[in-house]
Design a binder for these strands. Structure first.
Ligand code: SF4
Ligand code: SF4
Lengths: 154, 154
DNA sequence: TTGAAATAGCACTAAATTGGTGCGAAATAC
DNA sequence: GTATTTCGCACCAATTTAGTGCTATTTCAA
């Protein structure tokens, strides 16, 4: 239904929280205590974020997680991509140019237009940085589509 | 996973097919025979489209469906909205300004930024007309964001 | 050295969503 | 009257998602 997963939301919240903590390593427990979200699930999400390289992790009693890059260099697209995969809109466009298994594909009249929409969504996620999430400057995210075409995948 | 449902895809395909048929009423069977998609499910989708007023329906042996409005006045947003609901991104923003049941909401740091992204997605769907789907003019869908702000809900 | 606290890994169950079908009724053209 | 069609609603199956269990490994600190 065109909605982010809870996992992704939890990840976004956690990362925003980390920005507030500066460069300090923050444990999963500490984050989970700040919001009414299941601690165990958040832990799983944080592991995914660590596996994808968005955050660094430290084990042991004083361990935790911290951003691997400054918040200006982490985009919503990065996070979504790490936790639930980049938006596809249709199961045929794999965002990395792979084969699909859709039977309709050979005669599908909506494939290419859908891809254009997907690209727009992706662009929008890529131009919204984690910094923009924590300090919501209204004009920052309303730049024209042509500006700031970053290293957008695909 | 941020993907349209099959229902929506089938609906889009059906509507594009109808555009090709001009103003003629086209039966569910006829459409289903043009693409390898389950006839029965397509019929269900067409019913939904009729219920939502996007297409007119005619019963009886020569019946079928036809667009209720010219393809320029039907947007992808309309279709998505009719078949799976408007994009929400998060379960809290209901696109019609209603209450949510998310426990995190009172302390959620990502709500407002997510809404901005959702609005952008919605806008993009609203400015892509059914006409643009059937005749993919590359520049047609890349109009500046400010243009063609239709009767966009929310 | 011992133990508490933390991440890592992976499997697993339960809920929700989606894909797809069954079946009978009502309309319409021939 | 019969064939063809939409209509309405319920239903099951597959997939995806939410959330949990459990154990191992690392690290700090007493
Ligand atoms: S080929 Fe067409 S029907 Fe198949 S997944 Fe892509 S858009 Fe959807
Ligand atoms: S309030 Fe925050 S956590 Fe809850 S649904 Fe909205 S965005 Fe997600």
């Amino acid at each position: 239904m065109l909605q982010l997963t809870k996992r992704t939301e939890y990840g976004l919240i956690a990362l925003v929280h980390m920005v507030d903590q500066g460069g300090e390593y923050t444990s999963a427990r500490e984050i989970a205590e700040s919001y009414p979200i299941p601690k165990r699930l958040l832990a799983e999400v944080l592991k995914d974020l660590a596996r994808s390289g968005l955050v660094n992790s430290l084990r042991g009693s004083t361990g935790g997680y911290a951003l691997a890059r400054p918040p200006e260099q982490i985009t919503v697209g990065d996070i979504v991509s790490a936790l639930e995969g980049a938006p596809t809109l249709a199961s045929c466009d794999t965002a990395d140019g792979n084969a699909s298994d859709c039977e309709v594909e050979p005669v599908c009249p909506i494939r290419s237009p859908l891809q254009r929409i997907r690209k727009g969504i992706w662009l929008q996620m890529q131009r919204t940085s984690l910094r923009a999430l924590v300090t919501p400057s209204p004009q920052a995210a309303d730049l024209p589509l042509t500006a700031r075409n970053g290293p957008a995948a695909s």
